[in-house]
Design a protein around this nucleic acid. Structure first.
Length: 233
DNA sequence: GCTGTAATAT
DNA sequence: TATATTACAG
């Protein structure tokens, strides 16, 4: 992050959302699912859960021993620390993302982009939107599962995921959608009584029907609470 | 300061 | 459509 270009503040001041949020709901869905115990949580899993420090090595299996051998990579010599997000990009177009790259063409603003005064000689770097690949998402879900319903807050998730360049905002945003997704699953059965939600937004459709299991299983930790588990129908 | 949520922007 | 950003409340 060097001399991040100053993003022009949008003279907005909208705040269209009514100030009073008296009908503010609580996030009971998740808690309810958790409280359901029998279906949502497996206590023994949580008891035996490793600490955050022990979880970081989750990045290890990303390079199968066989593959490492083929490339003459000494796995033992690799630090079990942060995983660069670049390594987790698995989509064909994932190269396009770049928030971690120093330079980027970034040039979508037709307006005369006034060189940020604050950049003073610094190369302006514009953050491209990050791409939540299935790999990244898998790590995300695992982190959420490990942390549990109550502990799965952006800050903790970022820490657990241990992905280079991943910000709290990234995760917060993703988490928000993720929760909507879960909520949708929950309401799928119960909401049958309520008005038929025309065309429910396909949140996370991209990740649908693909609960993480391979890596988790390889870790000998079984499949953590994932979509189905949390949904607990 | 962090979090959750909704609205809105890109 | 997916992700980011913002505002606001707690």
């Amino acid at each position: 992050m060097l001399s991040p270009r100053v993003v022009r503040p949008q003279p907005h001041a909208g705040a269209a959302s009514g100030g009073s949020s008296s009908s503010r709901r609580h996030m009971v869905d998740a808690e309810a699912a958790a409280a359901a115990g029998a279906c949502g949580r497996v206590p023994e899993w949580e008891l035996g859960l490793p600490s955050a420090a022990e979880l970081t090595p989750v990045s290890q299996p990303l390079i199968p021993p066989a593959l490492a051998a083929a490339f003459g990579i000494d796995l033992a010599g690799l630090p079990p620390t942060s995983v660069d997000a670049r390594l987790l990009q698995d989509s064909p177009t994932s190269h396009l993302y770049s928030r971690f790259d120093e330079f980027d063409e970034e040039d979508e603003e037709g307006e005369g982009e006034t060189e940020g005064a604050a950049t003073g000689g610094g190369r302006r770097g514009k953050k491209a939107r990050m791409v939540w690949t299935t790999e990244l998402h898998r790590r995300f879900v695992e982190a959420v599962a490990h942390l549990g319903e109550k502990g799965a807050v952006p800050k903790a998730i970022v820490r657990l995921m241990n992905v280079d360049g991943l910000t709290r905002e990234n995760v917060a945003s993703h988490l928000q959608k993720y929760r909507l997704y879960l909520k949708r699953l929950h309401t799928g059965g119960a909401a049958a009584a309520t008005p038929p939600p025309q065309v429910p937004p396909p949140y996370y459709s991209r990740f649908d029907a693909k609960p993480p299991q391979d890596a988790a299983n390889r870790n000998g930790l079984r499949t953590f609470i994932s979509y189905d588990k949390l949904g607990c129908d």
